[in-house]
Nucleic acid binder design. Structure first.
Lengths: 259, 259
DNA sequence: GACTACAATATTGTCAACAATCAGGTGCAG
DNA sequence: CTGCACCTGATTGTTGACAATATTGTAGTC
């Protein structure tokens, strides 16, 4: 049911890897192409490789992924539904540049959603589920220890989505997935300084509380954890104006060319 | 180059109260066509005019709405993202037939989301907002009194979405909107008997509790209200199997032709 | 020198024809 | 009568060409 599985090994966007047009004679060749391209772009967002404001040109994407422009068009349409890009008629689609207000809404919603998930987790998770999540947290901490920040960030994200999956409510899992996917764009647009996006691993503690079936503590820890994340961003109402051009370009060349 | 500040985004557009497409931008004729057709179909779902399982053929829709097949295709793609239709490759798209499990997930999620919205409503709503909502409830009760069930149902739905809008969190509002839009399909697929879908108007009481800034009572009432709604459906785990064809067809001819 | 009008280019949006695939029916053989 | 191969009509999927639009560059004028 859930169309997004972050299980897929991060093959990134391998531009020409699509050149291997493995014609599966099973019908609908391009229909899973849409899936593939969508996942690639979603992964790029999650890894913070797509700077807000960047224009995504149809032909360039089509060439890069070795697909038709129609496929790209469909992917962009889906990305727009998830607010990952914004579409300006007759001008093109641009990587979304979420406002501070949108960032605040996102985090506020996230607190509620994560609290709900934790609440269900306490009453539903089996020991096997918890063990699996513990292993995930361990890998995350190892990645931090190894200094592999990108991998650690990704595993940190995976913890939240996997926890949601484990709870078994597809709707809440999908909502959290959407929030989590949109968050990196908020981070890029409103990071306070050169803060690491996710440092301390509160995840282990949260898991402990869930294992101990301590609802209130688990919820409190999770809400605090989300608060930590938000605290590294500048989302205050009167804060710095969203800038229009220069700041965005400054942010742009700080990241290597994504495509 | 290219200043694009996308602050205001339009996503699921609110309840779509009619065809108020006053702004007529020169370009992009068909792009708001997509919007229009999407809203029409979404309204059809909200009014329970689309029986789960019905096939939506591209050419038929194109003819019915007087648009290109490409437009229809884009609309169907968006509907699929919202789980309002299900797409079977090389076969077509069909009005979604949510399983009982999906229905349960939907209602469980809804309880959390509505509770969150109520919680924010208590601390954020101004008197003017509450007055506006009271007027809405009044119209709803009047519709019931007039025996206009369809209108009453629609106003009842509007109460929830408008309350979410008033709270001002775009993310939570969008989530509730998605839930509310998917619910009618669950109702059609799993209605217990010939139950009216929404009878008693707890809405007034909920509003009173919000106006009195009584968070706990407001939340409790809202959760109870959602529980009432769910109670009219047969979503129990071991309940009647989701059937595959016959029940779907039975549900089909019970409703007049949707297009 | 700055501003406007205009041409050139690049990009998006639209459309219809073509190909691939599936559902249903027909006829033949057993 | 039943089962299987095949044919036929209908529907979806794909592609490329064409039109509409915005952006950039250039020249001309005040």
């Amino acid at each position: 049911m859930s169309e997004n599985k972050n299980e897929t090994a991060d093959r990134s966007e391998g531009p020409a890897s699509g050149a291997s047009q493995a014609r599966r004679r099973a019908g609908s060749q391009a229909i899973d192409e849409v899936q593939r391209v969508f996942e690639s772009l979603r992964n790029a967002v999650l890894d913070q490789r797509l700077p807000p404001g960047l224009q995504l040109k149809e032909q360039a994407l089509a060439d890069a992924f070795g697909v038709n422009r129609a496929v790209v068009r469909q992917v962009l349409s889906r990305l727009e539904v998830f607010r990952l890009v914004s579409h300006e008629p007759n001008r093109g689609v641009f990587v979304a540049h979420p406002s501070a207000a949108e960032g605040r809404d996102l985090f506020t919603a996230r607190r509620f959603i994560e609290a709900a998930i934790v609440e269900l987790a306490v009453e539903r998770l089996r020991d096997a589920d918890i063990e699996r999540l513990r292993a995930l947290v361990k890998r995350e901490q190892q990645a931090y220890a190894d200094g592999d920040l990108r991998k650690a960030l990704r595993l940190s994200i995976d913890f939240h989505t996997k926890l949601a999956d484990a709870v078994g409510n597809t709707v809440l899992a999908a909502f959290l997935d959407e929030i989590v996917t949109r968050t990196p764009l908020v981070v890029l647009a409103h990071r306070k300084a050169s803060q690491p996006t996710c440092a301390l691993s509160d995840h282990a503690q949260i898991l402990d509380a869930i294992a101990a079936r301590d609802v209130e503590r688990a919820k409190a820890l999770m809400i605090e954890h989300v608060g930590h994340l938000q605290g590294r961003l500048a989302l205050d109402p009167g804060a710095k104006r969203s800038d229009s051009n220069i700041a965005r370009l400054l942010g742009l060349d700080a990241v290597d060319n994504p495509i």
